[in-house]
Design a protein around this nucleic acid. Sequence first.
DNA 1: TCCAAGCCTGAATCGATCG
DNA 2: TCGATCGATTCAGGCTTGG
Lengths: 367, 367
Amino acid sequence: MTKTTTPAAQAMLPLNQILAGDCIEVMNSLPEASVDLIFADPPYNLQLRGDLHRPDNSRVDAVDDDWDQFGSFAEYDRFTRDWLTAARRVLKPTGAIWVIGSYHNIFRLGAELQNQGFWMLNDVVWRKANPMPNFRGKRLTNAHETLIWASKTEGAKYTFNYEALKALNEGVQMRSDWVLPICTGHERLKDEQGDKAHPTQKPESLLHRVLVGTTNPGDVVLDPFFGTGTTGAVAKKLGRHYIGIEREEAYRKAAQKRLDRIRIFDREALEVTGSKRAEPRVPFGTLVERGMLSPGEELYSLGSRFKAKVRADGTLIGRDIKGSIHQVGAQLEGAPSCNGWTYWHFKREGKLVPIDLLRQQIRAEMN
Amino acid sequence: MTKTTTPAAQAMLPLNQILAGDCIEVMNSLPEASVDLIFADPPYNLQLRGDLHRPDNSRVDAVDDDWDQFGSFAEYDRFTRDWLTAARRVLKPTGAIWVIGSYHNIFRLGAELQNQGFWMLNDVVWRKANPMPNFRGKRLTNAHETLIWASKTEGAKYTFNYEALKALNEGVQMRSDWVLPICTGHERLKDEQGDKAHPTQKPESLLHRVLVGTTNPGDVVLDPFFGTGTTGAVAKKLGRHYIGIEREEAYRKAAQKRLDRIRIFDREALEVTGSKRAEPRVPFGTLVERGMLSPGEELYSLGSRFKAKVRADGTLIGRDIKGSIHQVGAQLEGAPSCNGWTYWHFKREGKLVPIDLLRQQIRAEMN
DNA sequence: TCCAAGCCTGAATCGATCG
DNA sequence: TCGATCGATTCAGGCTTGG
């Protein structure tokens, strides 16, 4: 299927090394059309303004590093164009690129990929299992990041291990949304002071999925923004070659230490990300959003003693009591708690039906 | 709270109508700064494929000299720029815009939004509960679409019903990834032949969440690519005004028929859980004036570590620190700020009660 | 040794109002 | 218009601590 790098070409490549310097210059020093995959996690250009405190007054340790500061969108676009041009040159015709970003930069990144003739194969959403909440309550919890997977040109052959990803996904096609936890705990590299060694270390589970799905053993994977080397670590575990480029010495040292510790075919590399198999939680508001119940519709309590009205946001109102289906039920009954799902009923064709039936319908759809 | 459109301004608007014609011309015929929200589902530019193909296969080093390749993107970009400019003009300063797209167009859309000075608030992923599988097994199942929510300028006020969305999500913050089914079944409009009336009809659940979260009853919602009118249908149900613009007569007719059938929900049900921020402000001194607390009375901090004495002018004094309830609390805790209402407690019948309880009593009297 | 409770933290474009 | 002040606001997972 996929072409593997010939020994001759590989001999010219600094395989399994971390190269120091500016990624554009370093990429331009490599032979062209020599790399199978590029994974790039460029600076996001966050444009943060002031400090942010949690409700408990602790300060959020934000990304305020120099390498993330750009003067304008034009400057960021120039930077993007330049490194993507260099990346494209080193990519084999059958090669592919992954980039990752947030809404701050991903649209500019995606547009420039298209401008240069890369051909988008998928955009992928990394849905974070445990994102940081929005402390001020002014926006939605920013709970995902976006990846783009693109081939070098339209119509080019590329590597896609369909069956492997299907197997990773319990026998059904891998989708474009991946639920994975952020990088914490033992996996998160610490510096001598015990602080995080890099502000934006990616989880290995993310790279595992990327490399299993879109490279073969022996392939050459280049990461121009190597950081603390997650791409290299996973590549090594999975028997791929890596080339890392990193400007900051502290990151290079941390990455090298990390890579030296890794044993190939480490048991950890064989583990797949397990998914928790609990019944999915269904908010009551979902029934309203989906039109299964209408705002203003009346619900009846178990035994029909009480009534309450559905509101547009999925709360109930009954006799001056407002709140969730559980809260209103509990208050009306004078009980400490109440399972609203079995307590409340709606009318269909003259009969009272528990709302839990609707929840079951939604869960059935989700499978 | 949120400014509602004044009757005078609304009188000039063609409310709750479907306007025929090109959306740019029609938007330019509307008064400027007159609309609260724009929801736009523009063409996805899928036809680009053909145009993108280079006619001659001249092997140019594939960067910036391939005029043809940029040509078709440039055309889509021009179209995007023009309709966004017109949309921006009709938007109130406190207004916001939602756009939806897939990887074919969303990156160009997002970049142009930023170029025009819109300020991104969130990107939102609509994760489809039942997407079409990838039949050929060559890519990941394309299981999501991306929405962007942006205010007119950086720093502008915008409507966000935080508590309502939290209620819709069982009491926890709404995240940026929304799991909703695609539009099928009875909701999907059919033409006379029984075929789907529109190829990309959006589900009402998606618009429900958008409108509950980012508009208030009475607001004006504009959809420049109205199609079969999902935006209008949900707006009407939720007591918002809509303005639809659609070029194709067949879509306009289907949408009008759909809208005529809809009945508005119960007024009370359209009210949504409010935020504490909207509650009237009560100076601490009011509690003293009304005799709920007496000058000289002692207050105790959360955790009882500190005491402070109430003064006749509604300030506190404790350990040589004088000032407002917030200032004294912050200084004692060495915190950057402190909400005095929840921090300070008074004694009643041997128990410590937060002073916020007294504020709630005053607010209750005010209604 | 195990369990429960508490603590810590994560790529964040995170006010509104009064004077 | 700007500065000072008020005062609203957090979820999940993994680790640590204590019993």
